[in-house]
Simulated scan of single mutants.
Amino acid sequence: MVPMSGGAVASVPEGLLDGGVWFRVEEAGSASAVRRAAERLAAELAMPEKRVADLAIAAAEAAGNLVKHADQGLILVRTVRSADQAGVELIMVDSGPGMADVQFSIGDGHSTAGTLGIGFGAILRQASRWDLHSVPGKGTVMTVQVWPARLPDPAWAAGLTRPITGETACGDAWAIREIDGRRQMLVSDGLGHGGLAAAASHEAVRAFHRAPAVPPAQVVEFLHRAIGHTRGAALAVAELDLTAGMIRYAGLGNISGTVLGPDGNRRGMVSMPGIAGHQRRQVREYDYPLLPGATVLMHSDGVVDRWNAADYPGLLSHSSEVIAATVLRDAGTRRDDAGVLVAKVS
C-alpha cells in the first residue's frame, strides 16, 4: 500500500490491484489524482467504458465533497472481487463535521458550501452499491462500489489496512475464505514494519488460502510451519459456524478478536502468546456463542481496544466495510501498522 497522498498518479501504482491505495484529499488537485487512479484501475480490470466513465464521475465527486466539506479526508481506491467479476471500491473517510440528518444531506439541492448540492446524488447514481454512516462531531464514512455488470451479493466480511506513518508497505493483512462449508477469517500482523513485515503477512495470507479445510487451531499450526522462513507474525483465525451458532477462534500473539452481540454485549476472544513462524506454545482453540445479528471484529495491535460501538449510533447495522473503516479511523494509531477485519452474522 502506498502512502496516503494526493500526488499525481502516472500509472496504476503497485498495490492498487491487490490491496488498494490511500489518498489524502485536502485540496482540489487531490480529486484529479483519485479520479485518474480509479479510471486506471478500472481499465486494468477491463471494465466496460461506460462503467469506467461512471466510476470517474463518482470518484471525482467523492473527492470533491471531501475537499469542500470535510476535515482530514481520505479515500481508499481498491479492487473488489466476486466469483466471476472484479469491480472498484472507493472508501471515503473523514473526521468531521459529520451529518445530523443523512437522508436530507445526501439529497440533490442540499449544500453547505454554496454549490448546486448534487455531489452525493451524482455519486449514488453511478454506484452499483453504496453505504454511508455519519456522526456529528466524529465524521463520515462512505463506501461506493462500481461493478462492470450485475451486482453480486455483498461479501460476508471485509477488512482494511493502513501502514504506519512514513512507510509505504503495510505489515498487517487480512483474508477470508469458504472451504468445505467452513467460513474462516484471518488477520496477520508481520513482526516490525515495512517490507519484511509485509512479506511475512503476505506469506501468511498465501498459506491460509492453501491450508486444508480444518478447524482454526490446525490452520494456525499450518501457518506457523508455512511462514518459518519469514520474520514471523502475530496472527489469528476465526471460523463462523452459523449452523451451530458458534465461533471458533485460535491465535498466536496480540491479535484482538471481539464478538459484538445484537444486544450490545461485547465479548473478547483469547489468543495464545507466541510468534507464528518462530515461537509458539500449544495452540488452543476456543468456542464462543454467535447469535444472529452479531458482528465479529478482529484487529491488530495497531488498533486500540477502547473503541466503543455505543458511541456510534446505528453503526453495527451498516456494512462490514463501513464498520471497519470507522474503527480504523478512530481507533487506529499512526505509530503502528493497523488492520481491521469485520464479519456480519445474518
Results as ranks from 00 to 15, higher is better:
residue 211 A to I: 10
residue 211 A to C: 09
residue 212 P to C: 10
residue 212 P to H: 08
residue 212 P to N: 08
residue 213 A to Y: 07
residue 213 A to C: 07
residue 213 A to V: 06
residue 213 A to E: 04
residue 214 V to Q: 08
residue 214 V to A: 13
residue 214 V to G: 10
residue 215 P to N: 08
residue 215 P to Q: 03
residue 216 P to S: 15
residue 217 A to K: 14
residue 217 A to P: 03
residue 218 Q to N: 14
residue 218 Q to H: 15
residue 219 V to M: 09
residue 220 V to M: 06
residue 220 V to Y: 07
residue 221 E to R: 15
residue 221 E to Y: 14
residue 221 E to C: 10
residue 221 E to G: 13
residue 222 F to M: 08
residue 222 F to A: 05
residue 222 F to L: 03
residue 222 F to Y: 13
residue 223 L to I: 08
residue 223 L to V: 04
residue 223 L to D: 01
residue 223 L to H: 04
residue 223 L to R: 07
residue 224 H to C: 13
residue 224 H to Q: 06
residue 225 R to V: 11
residue 225 R to I: 15
residue 226 A to E: 10
residue 226 A to S: 09
residue 227 I to Q: 01
residue 228 G to R: 11
residue 228 G to D: 08
residue 230 T to Q: 05
residue 231 R to K: 11
residue 232 G to S: 04
residue 232 G to D: 04
residue 233 A to M: 07
residue 233 A to G: 05
residue 234 A to D: 08
residue 235 L to Q: 01
residue 237 V to S: 00
residue 237 V to T: 06
residue 239 E to T: 10
residue 240 L to Y: 04
residue 241 D to Q: 13
residue 241 D to L: 13
residue 242 L to V: 12
residue 242 L to N: 10
residue 242 L to Y: 12
residue 243 T to D: 12
residue 243 T to I: 12
residue 244 A to D: 05
residue 244 A to Q: 13
residue 245 G to Y: 11
residue 245 G to T: 01
residue 246 M to W: 12
residue 247 I to A: 08
residue 247 I to F: 00
residue 247 I to C: 06
residue 248 R to I: 04
residue 249 Y to K: 06
residue 249 Y to H: 06
residue 249 Y to I: 02
residue 249 Y to F: 13
residue 250 A to H: 00
residue 250 A to C: 04
residue 252 L to E: 05
residue 253 G to D: 01
residue 253 G to H: 08
residue 254 N to Y: 07
residue 255 I to F: 08
residue 255 I to R: 02
residue 256 S to W: 04
residue 257 G to T: 03
residue 258 T to L: 10
residue 258 T to M: 08
residue 258 T to S: 13
residue 259 V to F: 00
residue 259 V to Y: 00
residue 259 V to C: 11
residue 260 L to W: 14
residue 260 L to P: 02
residue 261 G to D: 06
residue 262 P to S: 09
residue 262 P to T: 07
residue 263 D to V: 13
residue 264 G to I: 04
residue 266 R to A: 14
residue 267 R to P: 11
residue 267 R to N: 01
residue 268 G to K: 05
residue 269 M to N: 00
residue 269 M to V: 09
residue 269 M to F: 07
residue 270 V to Q: 14
